[in-house]
Each structure stands twice: as structure tokens, then as C-alpha cells.
Design a protein around this nucleic acid. Structure first.
Lengths: 162, 162
DNA sequence: CCGCTTGCGTTGGTGTCACTAACGATATAG
DNA sequence: CTATATCGTTAGTGACACCAACGCAAGCGG
């Protein structure tokens, strides 16, 4: 979808103002910006997500990491591989439960995370450049409400949920 | 990415509040909602986009349609095929320029479009259900500014209007 | 202790989507 | 007439979200 080029042709208002479409296009631009920025530093969105979660939670299993990042556990394998390859993370079997791998952020990983944070800050800034600070906060709040609202469905979830 | 399931595990605030990530997740939910809704009616996002553009512009070439909808011209081929198959649209060679196909919305297509509009309205409503009318308008405006701002690059034109 | 069920990490695969590359046919410029 | 550009079309790519199934380990009931 994404727009590509447009030599001044009229995009119908019904399309221009359709929220689902706006979300799609904005998301495409957003992903492109952050993917390119991180790519220049040999990194990936998922690397950042995993490392942030690891810094907050300390060493955890891959399953827990999947919950905390939203990265599917089948995709997480490759992410951990790449991070471990670069020695940003260590994967070790959990002695208490030998089904698990405990993932630990290395000091190098922590430094790396600082760098990725800078890169992402810049990218967000570019993404939101047409908006004021107040508008950015507003947008973030509104999107957060939408995402939170639609965050149900797949799992069983305890009886207490909801 | 999309969240999948979450048994109450803590998603770090740095992730939850990252605009590019919020956009991605919101977009995923949005696309899922509209794709499923339209799918139940044997339709597709692109069908709607093309038909809206055709209704506004009258008969146009595929290239023009591509500009007006943002659908890549290589993808538009299949879209027109599907619409023509259902007799919602007619594809005829342009006598004035035999490289072109002129695409015309049929009366059946126009009726069909009314139906798709209903479906999409419902889907947008579900998507935005946690927001008030004012907030929905706000969100649409903010997203529109972002999309518009990033809608450059490929063609001539200054790279970064600002 | 044994069998059953559940959770873990891993592999391989699927469908959607935006986008690129190249081609034959046609139109237009020099 | 030759060169270049545009149009529709085909095929293919890479990113992404997600599913299915497996081997293995843990925990539980009997």
C-alpha cells in the first residue's frame, strides 16, 4: 500500500481519512524508519525489545521473554541466536528446570542497549516530526488505549482476568 | 508481534510507549479486523480502495488508479482481475492509447461499494471503540499529518518538505 | 513407580503485504 | 528512424505474524 510516489493525483478523501488505512500507512513508514536506522547499526527491532525486557526483568526464560516482548516464541529463537552470536546475551540451561534456557543480558549487551535507545529516539523523532510534543503524547495515549483494548482473545487466561 | 497471549506478564513501559511499536500493533489489529470483516463478504481492502477511487474519478487507467489508491501497479493487476471476475468493474483497452486499460465501475460495482462502506464503517467502529468521537477525530488528524509528511521520496519533489 | 498432561525450546512452514526487476507492447521525442 | 519512456503484466523477494508438530523435561494422580 504505502503510497510509493504520487505525482499530485487525487487520493479520495474516503481513503485518506479511513483510520485503518491511516494506521497501516503510518505503521509502514514507522517500521521502515526504525528498521533502516537499526539496520545501519546491525540491529533489529526485536533485538531492542528483547534487551529492554531483559534489562527490566533480569535473566528470564525464553517463554517469559516472549510474553514480555510480544515476540512469538518460534521467532524468538532466531533473535536470541543473533544476540548470543554478538555476545550481547547469554543463553544457558536452567538447572532448576532443564526444559528452560535462562537468557541473561551481558554488560556488553547493556552498553549496546544504550546505543539502540539513542537510535530509536532519533527514529521516533523523525517519525513524529510533524507533531508537537503535546500531540505526540496525545497520539501515544490514544494508540495505547486501542492496543490495550484489543489485547485479548488467543489465550485461555485465568478466571480473574477481564 | 501482535501480542498473542499474555498471562499478566509485565511488558516494559519503554516498549509499551514506543510510538513506532504502538503503530505496528494498532495497525496489525486494524488490518485483521477489516480483513476479516471484508473477507466474510468475499471482499478485500484493495477492492474497496479501487472502487472508491473509480467512483470519484470515473473511468481511469490502471496507472492512474495506482496513484489514487496507493496500490502498487504490479498488485493492481490481480485486484482488477478479481473485480472484473465479479463484474464490479470493466477493463477495456483505451482506443486513444493502446498501452492502457480503462477501468470502469459497473452499476453492480457501485451497489457493491455501498455494501463495503457499511462493512468498513462497522470495522472502524470496532477498531476505535475505546475512543470517544472527539478522540477518533483527533487520532485521524494526527495520523493524517504523519502520513502526509512522510509521503515523499520516490518521485521528483523535495525529499523533505517539513 | 508409571502414565498422563503440561510447558519449554526448536524446526519448518503458511499467508499477507509492500515492493523490485524485467519484459513485450505501445507511444513519443529527437 | 532510433532512442527513450510509459503501460500492463509476470515473477520473485524479504519482512512479518503466526501455526503445527516435535522431542524433551517436569509435575501430578493414582
Amino acid at each position: 500500500m504505502t503510497t510509493g510516489e504520487n505525482g499530485g493525483a487525487a487520493v479520495p478523501a474516503r481513503l485518506r481519512e479511513l483510520p485503518s488505512r491511516l494506521l497501516g500507512q503510518a505503521s509502514t513508514h514507522a517500521q521502515r524508519l526504525v528498521t533502516e536506522a537499526l539496520g545501519r547499526a546491525d540491529a533489529h527491532k526485536w533485538h531492542y525489545a528483547a534487551m529492554v525486557a531483559l534489562e527490566e526483568s533480569g535473566p528470564v526464560s525464553q517463554a517469559a521473554l516472549s510474553d514480555r516482548t510480544g515476540i512469538h516464541r518460534s521467532d524468538l529463537v532466531a533473535v536470541i541466536n543473533e544476540l548470543a552470536e554478538r555476545e550481547l546475551v547469554e543463553r544457558a540451561p536452567d538447572p532448576d528446570d532443564r526444559r528452560r534456557n535462562v537468557i541473561t543480558l551481558t554488560p556488553l549487551g547493556r552498553r549496546r542497549l544504550r546505543r539502540l535507545e539513542q537510535i530509536l529516539d532519533t527514529a521516533q523523532d523523525e517519525l513524529l516530526s510533524p507533531l508537537s510534543a503535546a500531540e505526540r503524547a496525545q497520539l501515544t495515549r490514544l494508540l495505547g488505549r486501542i492496543v490495550e483494548h484489543h489485547a485479548y482473545g488467543a489465550s485461555a487466561m485465568g478466571p480473574d482476568g477481564q
